[in-house]
Measured scan of single mutants.
Amino acid sequence: EVTIKANLIFANGSTQTAEFKGTFEKATSEAYAYADTLKKDNGEYTVDVADKGYTLNIKFAG
């Protein structure tokens, strides 16, 4: 089991951190699915992958 950390960075400057656990593939998939649910209210997003994929910096356009 691994932990994927998602740093969520919103257009208004606020930030939030979420963690997803499971296999690497499952946790990564859940992180992207979570970002997709936030897209409606926060706009499109870009992802900067860090720490060999264990950290995702997800920035929303607003």
Rank of each mutant, 00 (worst) to 15 (best):
E1D: 09
E1R: 03
E1A: 07
E1Y: 07
E1K: 04
V2A: 08
V2M: 08
V2H: 09
V2G: 04
T3I: 12
T3L: 11
I4Y: 02
I4L: 08
I4N: 00
K5G: 04
K5S: 09
A6V: 11
A6C: 04
N7L: 15
N7C: 05
L8C: 04
L8K: 00
L8W: 05
F10V: 03
F10Y: 15
A11Q: 15
A11F: 12
A11R: 12
A11T: 13
A11P: 09
N12C: 08
N12K: 08
N12F: 08
N12Y: 07
N12M: 08
N12V: 05
G13S: 09
G13C: 06
S14P: 09
S14C: 05
S14V: 11
S14L: 10
S14F: 13
T15L: 15
T15C: 05
T15A: 15
T15M: 12
T15Q: 13
T15F: 11
T15R: 11
Q16M: 15
Q16A: 14
Q16K: 09
T17N: 12
T17E: 09
T17I: 13
T17Y: 15
T17A: 11
A18H: 14
E19G: 08
E19R: 09
E19W: 15
E19C: 06
K21S: 14
K21R: 12
K21L: 14
G22H: 02
G22D: 05
T23I: 10
F24E: 04
F24G: 03
E25N: 08
E25K: 05
E25A: 08
E25S: 08
K26A: 15
K26C: 05
K26W: 14
A27S: 05
A27P: 01
A27V: 04
T28A: 06
T28D: 01
S29P: 02
S29K: 09
E30W: 09
E30S: 10
E30R: 07
E30L: 11
A31R: 00
A31F: 03
A31S: 03
A31P: 01
Y32F: 14
Y32M: 12
Y32C: 03
Y32V: 07
A33N: 08
A33I: 11
A33Y: 07
A33Q: 08
Y34Q: 03
Y34G: 01
Y34D: 01
A35R: 00
A35M: 10
A35Y: 02
A35C: 04
A35T: 03
A35N: 01
D36N: 13
D36T: 07
D36G: 05
T37S: 08
T37L: 07
T37P: 02
T37A: 12
L38N: 03
L38V: 04
L38C: 04
L38P: 00
L38R: 06
L38Q: 08
L38I: 07
K39S: 06
K39V: 12
K39M: 10
K40T: 12
K40G: 12
K40P: 11
K40H: 14
K40L: 12
K40N: 08
D41P: 05
N42C: 04
N42L: 09
G43D: 03
G43I: 02
G43M: 03
G43E: 04
E44W: 08
T46C: 06
V47G: 02
V47A: 07
V47P: 02
V47D: 02
D48R: 11
D48G: 14
D48F: 14
D48V: 14
D48Y: 13
V49T: 11
V49F: 12
V49R: 07
V49S: 10
V49E: 08
A50K: 12
A50I: 11
A50N: 08
A50Y: 14
G53K: 03
G53C: 03
G53N: 03
G53V: 02
Y54W: 10
Y54G: 04
Y54V: 05
Y54A: 06
Y54M: 06
Y54I: 05
Y54C: 04
T55G: 03
T55F: 06
T55C: 04
T55L: 12
L56F: 05
N57S: 08
N57A: 05
N57G: 04
I58Q: 00
I58H: 00
I58E: 00
I58N: 00
I58L: 06
K59T: 13
K59A: 08
K59G: 04
K59Q: 08
K59F: 11
F60Y: 13
F60I: 01
A61V: 09
G62A: 13
G62V: 09
